[in-house]
Amino acid sequence: MTQIDIALKVLDHQILDRDGRRCGNVDDLEIEGGPGETARVTAILVGPGVWPQRAGWIGRIASFVGGGRRVRVPWGEVREVESHVILRKSAEELGLGRGDDRLRPWIEKIPGAHR
């Protein structure tokens, strides 16, 4: 059990899946619970679709360029918070890293792609 500053230690940090694969940054955090109740971080929000709420109109443009997807990763999927945020499952299982997965078949068509 540790005390952490959440924006400092979690927000905007790199996410790694259980195999150490980079699959996004923590673009925002979902919090449930209000005054007088226990407030908990319930999910990590990832993807260009989350950027408009972080950076106004530049965020909207960047989001559009990036494809506008957003993925919700329930906090229970987080194994540990170190320098990076490490997840219990693989990226595919959680719907992360889809941009890389969709592009990979095209890159693999070029000879030498596995060098």
């Binding site: 790199q14 996410i15 694969r21 980079r22 699959c23 996004g24 940054n25 990832v46 990036g66 890293g97 941009g99 890389d100 592009l103 990979r104 095209w106 890159i107 693999e108 070029i110 030498g112 792609a113 596995h114 060098r115």
Partner: peptide
């Protein structure tokens, strides 16, 4: 910045974007 996989030590196919 975007959190993609990156690196010259990754194969070309393992860091597509």
């Amino acid at each position: 910045f975007c959190g993609w996989e990156w690196g010259r030590y990754r194969t070309n196919a393992n860091a597509p974007r």
